[in-house]
């Protein structure tokens, strides 16, 4: 029986090597390491178990752990692609990669579709769209009449549901976004262009030089 001593520092559960994550995303190794510092900060904000729970995600977004928000819930669930109720580091980096300014538009369009496809049926249905508008009104304290809500939901469906079957599929969504590119503007985070410059407090000494890769 041998005795194994790891020289690696203790990492959070679900930790993945920055070299691997950098190879799979648009981030450099040092940027992944900077994201790890951010990840550790968020994941230890309430429960210090090294995993991002939904309350911690909400706290980071809203400075309020109890603020429920339909869209934050959807984004959390999509980041948590392993569906184990927490965002692991690899999920965090790969998902944020879609928000990189240089990430493909197709990935951004697909991600936005999944946010709006509330019940994961593969379609955005009229009732889901109405539900999202109502949730947003509740969030913003804006008051709109029932008639106005019906009008914008119907108008949107008239424009997007080209097949006229009462639901918007991914192809219809892609077409609709191509005509309304502002719909995915929140799918790009300029911060990610060079996170090590934007957030010098996150920069740590890289164990692997990017130039070595």
């Amino acid at each position: 029986m041998g005795c194994f001593h790891s020289k690696s520092p203790k990492h959070t559960p679900g930790y993945e090597e920055p070299v691997i994550l950098a190879a799979e995303t648009l981030f450099s190794v040092s940027e992944v390491e900077a994201l790890y510092e951010l990840y550790k900060k968020i994941s230890s904000s309430i429960t210090d178990d090294g995993l991002i729970h939904k309350e911690e995600f909400q706290l980071a977004l809203f400075r309020n752990r109890n603020k429920r928000n339909l869209f934050a819930d959807r984004v959390f669930d999509i980041f948590d692609y392993k569906r184990n109720g927490v965002i692991e580091f690899g999920e965090f980096v790969r998902s944020l990669g879609i928000f990189h300014p240089n990430a493909s538009v197709a990935d951004k369009v697909s991600f936005a579709f999944r946010v709006y496809d509330l019940r994961s049926t593969g379609f955005i249905e009229r009732e889901e769209l109405r539900e999202m508008v109502l949730a947003l009104l509740h969030e913003s304290d804006v008051v709109l009449s029932e008639e106005y809500i019906e009008m914008i939901v119907n108008k949107t469906f008239d424009d997007a549901d080209k097949k006229g079957d009462g639901k918007i599929d991914l192809d219809e969504w892609k077409e609709f976004v191509s005509q309304n590119p502002s719909l995915i503007k929140n799918m790009t985070l300029p911060y990610l262009k060079d996170i090590t410059l934007a957030f010098p407090s996150f920069v740590v000494r890289s164990e692997v030089e990017d130039s070595d890769l």
């Binding site: 510092e37 709006y116 999202m132 609709f176 309304n180």
Partner: peptide
């Protein structure tokens, strides 16, 4: 006024604006 429900949502929902994650730093 908005005539596009998705534009209304994407423009106004703070839950779909992840830039705040970085303010944590």
């Amino acid at each position: 006024p908005f005539y596009n429900a998705f534009e209304f949502i994407s423009s106004m929902s703070s839950g779909f604006d992840l830039s705040n994650l970085f303010e944590s730093g």
